[in-house]
């Protein structure tokens, strides 16, 4: 197995923060932690190329570094691309995530990296990549490399990947089917009994934590602003043209409302399995308040109402889905020059 390994200037042996501006360098063979990586990957594995780059350079010249790294991995005919582990080093983690992501999508080469959960690179790439949870301490280098090697090997050999707790990677927010022998009721009572007895048990629902989002600036002059209506209440035109699912929706739609002063229930339906839709069916303005907003547009309180509203169905949806749709909506909103959004949620 041929491996290409990416390291920052520190682990690449160039030096500390003073060398963070060093451009990408190519070394033949394993360097620093790469030697250990080669060892734990076992017989028949060779780190053919090590790429070393300063943390600042990698972040400031991301496009250039990414393109060179992809090219080097291609030239090396690598079977596996390994970056880090990066522990808590933020710039290192961001670079490792971006490079892994680029190598995999450009070349289809399996990739593996390692980071602490607190690393901003983990926040950004944990859904897209397998990131071994390295913890904060570089003293754990060997343990982390063993896990990275094991998972990397599985990816190369296309062996099924176990759960995050089994393999040691950061939860990706993926949901998959699994056969179990006990019903939910039995499992629940087992857990409860264990809890009461003070024994260990593992919850099947892991609470997700959300990082705070900085508040976007206030709209300075609403009378000049373009406003858009968005809802996660599943209001769609009759026939549900985009086939938006009523639960765990993977799709969203934008629907024309230009020239309309009011929404009529005859033209719409609700694709949402989580609330009683009768009232909104009777009058969709109860979810998408077009009539009131249109009045305010006519009175000049709002510059312009965007001629479409966006809708999807917000129910029992994995975060990986909703985040993707959110990003897609942002693209649309930016493209249309929308200044502010009213989101109505059931």
């Amino acid at each position: 197995m041929r491996v290409v390994h990416y390291l920052n200037q520190f682990y690449g042996g160039l030096g500390g923060e003073a060398k963070a501006g060093v451009p990408l360098e190519t070394r033949e063979g394993a360097v620093g932690p790469g030697r250990l990586l080669e060892q734990v990957l076992g017989e028949g594995t060779k780190v053919v190329t090590t790429l070393v780059c300063g943390d600042n350079y990698a972040v400031e010249h991301q496009a250039e570094v990414t393109a060179s790294v992809v090219e080097k991995v291609r030239e090396a005919r690598a079977d596996l691309f390994v970056a880090g582990p990066c522990f808590e080093a933020g710039r290192y983690g961001m670079a490792a995530g971006a490079l892994c992501s680029a190598v995999r999508s450009a070349l289809g080469v399996p990739v593996i990296t390692g980071m602490a959960e607190e690393n901003p690179g983990a926040d950004l790439y944990r859904e897209a990549l397998y990131i071994i949870d390295s913890g904060r301490s570089a003293a754990k280098m060997r343990d982390v490399l063993i896990k990275m090697a094991s998972l990397g090997r599985k990816l190369v050999n296309k062996v099924p990947i176990g759960l995050p707790t089994e393999e040691g990677y950061l939860r990706r927010g993926l949901i998959r089917d699994q056969f179990v022998t006990k019903t939910a009721a039995t499992r629940l009572v087992d857990m409860l009994v264990a809890k009461v007895k003070g024994e260990a048990f593992e919850s099947e629902m892991v609470a997700t934590s959300f990082e705070p989002i900085p508040m976007p600036p206030a709209v300075k002059d609403l009378s000049k602003a373009k406003l858009m209506l968005v809802t996660d209440g599943g209001l769609v035109p009759k026939g549900n043209p985009d086939k938006i699912e009523g639960m765990a929706a993977t799709r969203w739609g934008a629907y024309r409302i230009e020239g309309l002063d009011d929404l009529s229930g005859e033209d719409y339906e609700i694709s949402h399995g989580g609330y009683d839709p009768r009232f909104v069916q009777e009058d969709p303005d109860r979810l998408v308040p077009l009539d009131a907003v249109r009045e305010m547009e006519k009175r000049g309180m709002i510059g312009k109402l965007h001629p479409e509203f966006i809708s999807t169905s917000g129910l029992a949806n994995p975060l990986s889905n909703t985040r993707r749709m959110g990003k897609e909506m942002v693209e649309k909103v930016k493209q249309e020059g929308v200044d502010a959004v009213i989101l109505t949620s059931t």
Partner: peptide
């Protein structure tokens, strides 16, 4: 959308959920 810097106000009856996920204007 707020992460992308677009001002959003969320009208909802499930305010704790909106706050949990980080909505700033509810």
């Amino acid at each position: 959308m707020e992460k992308a810097g677009i001002p959003v106000v969320q009208i909802t009856s499930a305010v704790p959920i909106a706050k949990m996920v980080g909505s700033n204007r509810v």
